[in-house]
Write a protein that binds this DNA or RNA. Structure first.
Lengths: 229, 229
DNA sequence: TCAGTTATTGTTGATACAACAACAAGAGCG
DNA sequence: CGCTCTTGTTGTTGTATCAACAATAACTGA
């Protein structure tokens, strides 16, 4: 604890805003207007202000770019990126978050319109993103995939009311697997606190009407939901 | 991304150095010599220097306090603590880590001797620790407990060579459960890459000689090791 | 009415696991 | 040396779980 030399830093919060679009896990990117990395695609982010926590800064970025209130998403810390030269100009330590949000629909970037765009994660990872954002995005995607095994976060990708099949599709897309509809249905409906039935049904996916559910209060699954077993 | 106002911060790395001592999950605490919180117990930590990452700063703290090289421990990021007033003097954002180290033996604090001490985590949590270190320690302990389910990190609490029973005791202590010796033995020895047999045996725990193992290359368990099931 | 589609529930054979029993291999002691 | 004590390791078995697949339910649209 050397209180004598105290090197100051700048702390930023960067957010990988993830959703399911057109059958693919996708991320919201912005095109940078300023140096450094002018013109490059980057994750939304900004400096942490004096009166806010890093979580609040991340939630602010999320809202500014998508209009999604923090309560309607699942925001989780995925790491700290602190290589001394990750920003060519000055030292910036970045705290990265992943935000899981429902499909925002056709195309209506909430914030500064033209400069933001959704891109499937696999394609985004091939882009020359600004800073170390390729690495951050890789970690965010891996984090989301793991998160789906142990938590109920998959519901964050769905609208407030959703069917079991819609939830199943989330897992199938993020994990890139096929899941047995019957077994999946039993599994998730049996877990107490995962899904709350609304009593309503819908036929929006065709076929027999499906019961509608909202996300329950359970956050952590008692038994992990496994892929391919 | 407001590049105009750039509020600087100080970034610190705090480390909850955990081990198994006297049958309890324990943490290394230091008694603070300076204000703020002079005289209070605190987690080891310090500011991140200009030329190092937060991980390097944490590893440096770990080595300074225990002499344990980073390679002999499992160091993992457990969160960022950034309430604006968590440090009464100036804004300090803390990146917290948990380090799992083998039992350091009777009592030989590597660093500045008299001011460091091991304390069982439950007792440490009742102390009025400096800053928000109670919260950090709570999270670190919870993190370690969860980590043991999904990863092979339990081996970090053992010496380089250890028996299956010694490993089992780690789980029993951290999870506060009893595990069936036979079933546990089968389970862990069946998992490929978890344990590497050395060919040697030991009778240091009494009874029939037990085979010695070293930690394998596997980091993440294919199936979680569950308590009470 | 019938075909098509999806939802939900049943059935079943294989598998995994917890509980417990049995056996192995040393130490200590008379 | 034989006996007991202790712990490690392997067997056995009834039960619970689960994946695979079949059957049925409830709608839409032709």
């Amino acid at each position: 604890m050397s209180d004598s030399t105290i090197p100051g830093s700048f702390v930023a919060a960067d957010v990988a805003i993830l959703t399911i679009r057109d059958g693919a896990l996708s991320v919201l990117l912005i095109r940078r207007a300023n140096e450094p990395f002018q013109g490059r695609l980057a994750l939304p982010g900004g400096f942490v202000e004096a009166d806010e926590t890093v979580e609040q800064a991340a939630a602010r970025e999320l809202f500014e770019e998508t209009g999604v209130p923090k309560s309607a998403s699942r925001l989780s810390n995925i790491g700290v990126y602190s290589l001394p030269d990750r920003d060519p100009r000055r030292r910036v330590i970045s705290v990265a978050f992943a935000a899981l949000v429902p499909n925002p629909g056709p195309d209506r970037p909430g914030g500064d319109a033209a400069s933001t765009q959704w891109l499937p994660v696999d394609r985004a990872l091939k882009e020359p993103l600004a800073f170390d954002h390729v690495q951050i995005l890789e970690h965010a995607a891996a984090h989301a995939r793991r998160q789906l095994e142990y938590t109920t976060d998959a519901t964050a990708f769905c609208d407030t009311e959703f069917t079991v099949a819609e939830l199943r599709r989330v897992y199938e897309i993020v994990w890139e697997t096929k899941l047995d509809p019957g077994n999946f249905h039993r599994k998730v409906t049996r877990i107490d606190g995962f899904l709350e039935p609304t009593g309503e049904t819908t036929t929006r996916d065709g076929g027999r009407p499906a019961a509608l559910y909202t996300a329950g209060s359970l956050k952590r699954l008692p038994l992990p939901l496994a892929a391919g077993r």
